[in-house]
Amino acid sequence: MDEQLSKYLSGELSKDELRVFLERIENDHNLKAEFIRNLNRNAISATVAYSKDREEGIEKYKQFRLRVKQHNRRSIFVKAMRYAAVAILIVASTVFSTLYLYERELGSIMNTLHVPAGQRAQITLEDGTKVWLNAQSTLKYPSHFSSRSRKVEVTGEAFFDVAKKSKPFIVYTNDLELHVLGTEFNVYSYSDGNYIQTDLVEGSLKVINHFNDKNSVLLKSNQKMVYKDSKMTVSPITDPDHILWREGIYSFQNERLIDIIEKLQLYYDVNIIVVDPDIFNIRYTGKFRQRDGIDEILRIFQKIQSFKIVKDKEKNIITLV
């Protein structure tokens, strides 16, 4: 017998070991079959069972009835039917309870995807939802969504193309919850940023404050919401190109240097110090490839506004003089 299965049957698995074991069952058909056999034998109610296993049990029950009939003894048959009926009830209750317990355990197993500085990534979730992650961003998601809702957590910047399902899709950020059904939207929520922004490309999106349910807004297509200083501000999307980061392009449209620097620090995990504060409010417009790196982006800005670039690699600091 499989060692983990043996430990499970004897109740010796820790919580973490149980999660690993449940994942193995999901992916190993042989282990699952062995587990089902022990399930039926011991009437265990905390493992995986599917409808085909129930059908197999019912088929065995039919064979059992046939053997009983061959004894041609009505009293034995009646007693056997009673026990068989009880057995079927046990099997049925085991199937339903184990499906619930399995879903609860598996749904609690969270995966974490982190994208390092200067990179981006794309992932398709279990329900078909597609997620793009920008640099220095993290997505936490379950390996299996529950029957009631689909919940994920985001730190950083992400674009969601949510698969249309009856159960809601909820994205948790630092202070907000984004509730959707079938929607395309971008969310910017870095832990070191001083604001949260979400841009709704298509569909509808309800934004709720974690700490105050009454503080919420409902976005329509081509609207954006900026959350800053505990206030939500809704306005039309004026620069749709800023979500081109999905394709590896950073787009800035008439943005102040101080705001651009804040994003570059997050995207490339570097500290940028500006000695002359007068250049903070100079506005820039342009598009840059992510792979070009921060040095090339700053050199292009340097052509517009004269300043020197001093790098301290040991301390990971860039100073604009």
Rank of each mutant, 00 (worst) to 15 (best):
D241T: 14
L18C: 06
E296C: 06
D276N: 10
T47Y: 07
G156H: 01
K165W: 01
Y188K: 14
E247Y: 07
I272F: 05
I90F: 10
L266G: 00
G118L: 05
G182D: 04
L13H: 03
R73F: 15
L39W: 15
L5S: 08
N271E: 09
E59R: 10
D16V: 13
S51D: 14
I282F: 09
M110A: 09
A33L: 13
A158T: 01
G203C: 08
N212E: 08
V78D: 10
P236T: 03
S51A: 15
N215Q: 12
L39N: 12
V234A: 04
R289H: 14
H71D: 09
V20F: 05
Y83Q: 09
R37F: 15
W132E: 03
N186H: 04
D192N: 14
G182P: 07
Y50G: 02
N281V: 02
V154D: 01
D28I: 04
E34C: 04
E184F: 06
Y227R: 08
T198E: 02
L22T: 09
Y141T: 10
E55G: 01
N38W: 07
H242G: 02
V217M: 07
S137F: 03
L298G: 08
E177M: 11
H242F: 12
S251F: 13
L176V: 04
Q197M: 07
R67C: 11
K7W: 05
H179Y: 09
Q136M: 12
K214Y: 07
A33N: 09
S97C: 05
A163H: 01
K311P: 06
R24D: 13
F77D: 06
A33Y: 13
H29M: 14
F211S: 14
Y102E: 06
F211V: 06
V171C: 02
E262R: 11
I317T: 13
A46Y: 09
I260P: 03
K287V: 14
K287W: 05
E157W: 00
E34M: 04
F64A: 05
K140V: 02
K165C: 06
E255N: 11
A135C: 01
D16K: 15
K69N: 08
N254W: 08
L5I: 07
I272H: 05
R289L: 12
S235D: 01
F21K: 00
T124Y: 06
Y61I: 07
I273R: 07
R291K: 15
P277G: 01
K167G: 06
I282Y: 10
E12Q: 11
